[in-house]
Each structure stands twice: as structure tokens, then as C-alpha cells.
């Protein structure tokens, strides 16, 4: 169990993540969207200034959501409220903690504030979720105190391909660790750039020491199902919902599909009549600097 790593504080932090498993966390930019998300069965909402696809379109520096918007969202719903801060921007994180948000996402979707260091997340009482593309990155974030990992995918793309790549990479790297001898683990720690104690833990347990959710490009119920089959324990849906033609219906369908991911009949049924999903982007058309998943290390 996750509580074997870290003390009381970590148990409370991963404990909340445990409660969100099997659920859908939805990006929202205002009160109205938050209420729709809660009514559709979201287990939490993520407050942000602009959804990733708008950040892509409009450019400029993407920052933490204005405090009054975060508070408006916190007052509008009874489910946990998460909010994003920029990578390395511990002052934004301190503001979010002071506001009382339930989880802080140190997110590559916003413009990084520090190109060298991530936040020392151990210093905070509020738990953190961080993005990762592979096992080394996930364990570095956990080493800094993250209590939840989400595979990055490519946010705002409406394209699941990067999320699939990151989930598969994470899963096969974890599987590989379980086959190694104890004498091989130090070298693995060096190769992956991750703390030895965490490498040893993963080699023994065959999973991450904190819950692992998926994000970035989930646009349909079947996308959520694919992520669950590839080892995600919950899904984050960003631009996908409120950029579709019928957000309420799509939100509810993704919630239902995630819970019933092993039941294709239900997934088929709830995928009907959803209107048009967000248009989506071809990942290969994105320039290197347009790839949000490349942010952070």
C-alpha cells in the first residue's frame, strides 16, 4: 500500500487520491462548468484559467487561475477542487494552499516558471499531482513529494496517442523492474535518474507507490476506457468536455464508461448521440515547442 512510503502526511495525501480512483476529474474554468461537471458525476474538478486547447490557440503565458475564480468554483461544488500552478512556481502553490484547494497540479499545461527545478512538494500540507511520461520522471516527482501521478499525454490535442505512449511506457518499465535482480537496481536508478529507494519499492511491488491517473487527449468515452485498460486508475479530461457540442451528455458518458470500462455494451450505449467531439490535432503536425508534454523533466 502507498502508506508504506512516507508518514502520516503522505497517508492523508495518497488517501484522497485513493478516494478519486475509478473516477473522472474534469477541467473547468468557471462556476457554471464546475456545476455541470459535478452533476455529471465527476469525482473532482480542476480549476484553470483557460483549457489547454485555448492556451494552444491563444498563446501567451498561461498562469495559475485567478484566486477569485478558484474560490467561486470551491463554493459552487461539494466535490474536491484541484488547481494548477506553473512548474517550479512554489509561490503560486502557496497561494493555492492558502485558498484551501484539495490538490495542486504542478502542470506542464501552464507556462513553466522554472526550467531547472520542480517544487519541493514535501513542504506543503496540500497534496500534489504531477505529470510524467515515463517511470523515471514519475519517481522523481514522487521523490519531491507528489502524492499522485498522471501520465501527461498531450493536453489540448484531443488526441489520445501520447497518453497511450506514456501509459504503455510506464507500464512496461515497471514490469521490467520486477524482473531485475537486487544488484541491478542501483544501475537502474542511475539510468532512470530516480531515487534508489523508490526503484527498490517499485521492483518489489510492481506498481507506483502512489495512484496513477491518465491525462492529455481524452476526448471520448472509448478514450477513457483505453486509458483504464492501460493501467490508469482514473482519468483527467481537459478540453475534451467543454469543447464538445454537448458537454453535459459527454461528461456523463465518460463517467459511465470509466466505471464500466470492462463492459463494452454499456460503453457502446453511452457513446451514442454525443454530437461531435472536439476536433483534435495530429501530433505529428505539432512543432517541438508546441508539445506541452516536453515541459518538465
Amino acid at each position: 500500500m502507498a502508506s508504506q512510503i512516507g508518514g502520516t502526511e503522505m497517508k492523508l495525501k495518497t488517501g484522497l487520491a485513493e478516494m478519486l480512483k475509478g473516477g473522472v476529474i474534469m477541467d473547468v474554468v468557471n462556476r457554471e462548468q464546475a456545476v455541470i461537471a459535478e452533476k455529471s458525476g465527476a469525482v473532482a474538478v480542476m480549476a484553470l484559467e483557460r483549457v489547454p486547447s485555448d492556451i494552444r490557440k491563444e498563446g501567451g503565458v498561461a498562469r495559475m487561475s485567478p484566486p477569485e475564480i478558484v474560490e467561486e468554483i470551491m463554493n459552487a461544488v461539494s466535490i474536491p477542487v484541484m488547481a494548477k500552478c506553473r512548474i517550479g512556481h512554489f509561490a503560486e502553490a502557496m497561494v493555492l494552499e492558502a485558498l484551501g484547494v484539495d490538490y495542486i497540479d504542478e502542470s506542464e499545461v501552464l507556462t513553466p516558471a522554472d526550467e531547472q527545478y520542480h517544487i519541493d512538494k514535501m513542504d506543503f500540507k496540500t497534496p500534489f499531482v504531477c505529470g510524467a511520461r515515463n517511470l523515471g520522471e514519475a519517481l522523481r516527482r514522487i521523490g519531491e513529494g507528489a502524492a499522485m501521478i498522471r501520465t501527461k499525454g498531450e493536453a489540448g490535442s484531443g488526441n489520445i496517442v501520447e497518453a497511450v505512449r506514456h501509459l504503455r511506457t510506464l507500464r512496461s518499465q515497471i514490469r521490467r523492474l520486477t524482473t531485475l535482480g537486487s544488484e541491478e537496481l542501483m544501475n537502474e536508478a542511475k539510468e532512470l535518474g530516480a531515487p534508489l529507494a523508490l526503484i527498490q519499492w517499485v521492483a518489489r511491488e510492481g506498481k507506483l507507490p502512489v495512484p496513477n491517473f491518465a491525462a492529455g487527449g481524452i476526448a471520448t468515452p472509448a478514450d477513457a476506457v483505453l486509458a483504464m485498460y492501460l493501467g490508469a486508475e482514473s482519468v483527467f479530461v481537459g478540453s475534451g468536455i467543454f469543447k464538445s457540442s454537448n458537454p453535459e451528455k459527454l461528461a456523463s458518458a465518460i463517467v459511465q464508461a470509466t466505471t464500466n470500462y470492462q463492459n463494452p455494451k454499456i460503453v457502446a450505449e453511452c457513446s451514442k448521440g454525443l454530437g461531435s467531439p472536439m476536433r483534435g490535432l495530429d501530433i505529428h503536425q505539432l512543432k517541438a515547442e508546441e508539445r506541452l508534454s516536453e515541459r518538465g523533466w
Partner: peptide, 9 residues
């Protein structure tokens, strides 16, 4: 978990 989500499901 989240009771609102469970009721819905």
C-alpha cells in the same frame, strides 16, 4: 469515494 459521483453511477 465521492458520494455525488456514486449516486449518479
Amino acid at each position: 469515494g465521492e458520494s455525488t459521483s456514486m449516486i449518479q453511477l
